[in-house]
Design a protein around this nucleic acid. Structure first.
Lengths: 142, 142
DNA sequence: TTTACTGCAAATCCTTTGCAGTCTG
DNA sequence: CAGACTGCAAAGGATTTGCAGTAAA
């Protein structure tokens, strides 16, 4: 997916190019504020509103995905995979992994049994990645 | 579970009794603001902060559960079932149904394969209940 | 009597919006 | 050129916090 599609046919300003590039390089889940901070390391004076608007567009095209929240802020992550899937987020470092959708016929049948027609679902798994577990062991905070 | 346990051993004031009773009677998912409005129909001058604090306590004991969000506000619902489960929320009227946890060995193995140790997960299914579907058909907004 | 709970108001904090100016397409 | 994007600042909205007073235990 090119940046033009990522921005849903909108214009690709230098700021938007930098924002997408930065999000991509982060390689982990981030809040808009964190992304904004990272962007400003390369170019100062990028407004928060600009980042919020860019993230909104990137989310709309599926280039970014919401992967839960942290301390009241929405967490986003670069979403490369095409097929339907969900995310596994390390609460320590934000590393993200993909997982298959665990919803099976059983779950949907249960919903249908209740008279529900499922239109949308949100699934996020939080955990600790191997690196964070070993570093916390070394620090003794287990 | 009695109210004392629901409030985690805290004090049970008339306000807290009313708040729990109102949440129970609502019988659907609600935001703190909605709950506060319903509570005030019975007793005015109940502060929002009081409701927020009560809901926080009720959530901590498992008497209430977060079941997603709507328009930027957290959605809560009375949680009766003991065993681990998740919720199905009608986006029309807020009706809630329980569903079994769809996470199976496969999903957890995938996580383990990525080096992750899953500590927590959030699953919410949104949809429309039979009543809302039929009423929207009658209204012609299908 | 102790101290948790209450109501009110102020404070936080994330996110959105309004505007005038700039720059992409 | 038109209008989409930008930076700044103000607005908005949900939730939290500070405080003095009240009341559960």
């Amino acid at each position: 997916m090119g940046l033009t599609e990522a921005y849903r046919g909108g214009r690709v300003s230098p700021q938007r190019e930098l924002i997408a590039d930065t999000a991509d390089r982060l390689g982990r889940a981030f809040t808009v504020d964190e992304l904004c901070g990272a962007v400003r390391e390369k170019r100062e004076n990028v407004g928060v509103a600009t980042v919020y608007r860019a993230v909104g567009a990137l989310e709309g095209s599926g280039w970014l995905a919401r992967v839960g929240e942290r301390d009241g802020s929405v967490l986003y992550a670069r979403c490369v995979r095409d097929a339907h899937h969900h995310h596994l987020v390390c609460t320590g470092c934000g590393t993200v992994a993909y997982i298959e959708c665990p919803l099976d016929a059983g779950a949907l049948n249960t919903a249908a049994g209740h008279g529900f027609e499922v239109t949308r679902h949100e699934i996020v798994l939080y955990g600790t990645c191997a690196a964070c577990r070993s570093s916390s062991q070394m620090a003794g905070d287990d």
